[in-house]
Design a protein around this nucleic acid. Structure first.
Lengths: 106, 106
DNA sequence: ATGGAATACATCATATCACGAGGTATTGTG
DNA sequence: CACAATACCTCGTGATATGATGTATTCCAT
């Protein structure tokens, strides 16, 4: 998938991935894979960004002797998802413009 | 509208704007305004890019003593639009993932 | 007739961001 | 014992949308 087209959807994807249940980096990537492939470097960049924007909080926990950083969505994060849904209406309208069939002029 | 969300749609928008009829910069911006607002600097960047990718050709013509650069879509440009339509299916599937309601676990 | 809006083009510097390359460390498996 | 998988991280790069800025002409209201 075109990188540019992904942009603007990735933040919402990551937030959606932790919406129902706290999750951690490696799991988020696997959960998103069927819908959108993103590399680790991309994910960690996004997680940092979302944390800075206070759309999620982080908690470190041990699991089988390995550290995991669990991400939890905040109110702002949930609002971001709603915002995305609103904006997507515009995306649809743009799509309709692009796919609109020729009006034949004579 | 979020800048990031626009990305990846703009090229297709501009191509769609000249698909039915050759057009020029100023007119493209006005035609797209109801769907997506883009500045002149953005448009000219895109037009340059699309020209370099041979998705459109340029012809300069005089109109009321003023020069206009008319852009004409090529086969590659039309193909790009079709490609966009295909990719949009993935966009929809991502949207559905994001808006998917909670599956309540117990 | 004069000034400002509209038309029409263009360049440049900047900020955002996805990603590959590379790194560390542990656990599970053939 | 080596290699995949798990799990985290940083840095440099390239793509790109945009504001600021510039040039020049035409149209229109005062």
């Amino acid at each position: 998938m075109d990188i540019q087209l992904k942009r603007g959807m990735l933040d919402a994807c990551v937030l959606a991935a932790i919406k129902n249940e706290d999750s951690y980096g490696y799991k988020i990537i696997k959960d998103l894979k069927p819908y959108v492939v993103l590399s680790e470097s991309t994910l960690y960049t996004i997680l940092k960004r979302l944390e800075a924007a206070r759309m999620l909080t982080v908690r470190t926990a041990e699991h089988d002797g390995r550290l995991r950083k669990y991400y939890h969505i905040t109110e702002a994060g949930l609002r971001r998802i709603e915002e995305f849904k609103e904006e997507f209406k515009e995306v649809i309208s743009i799509y309709q413009f692009v796919t609109k069939e020729d009006v034949h002029h004579e």
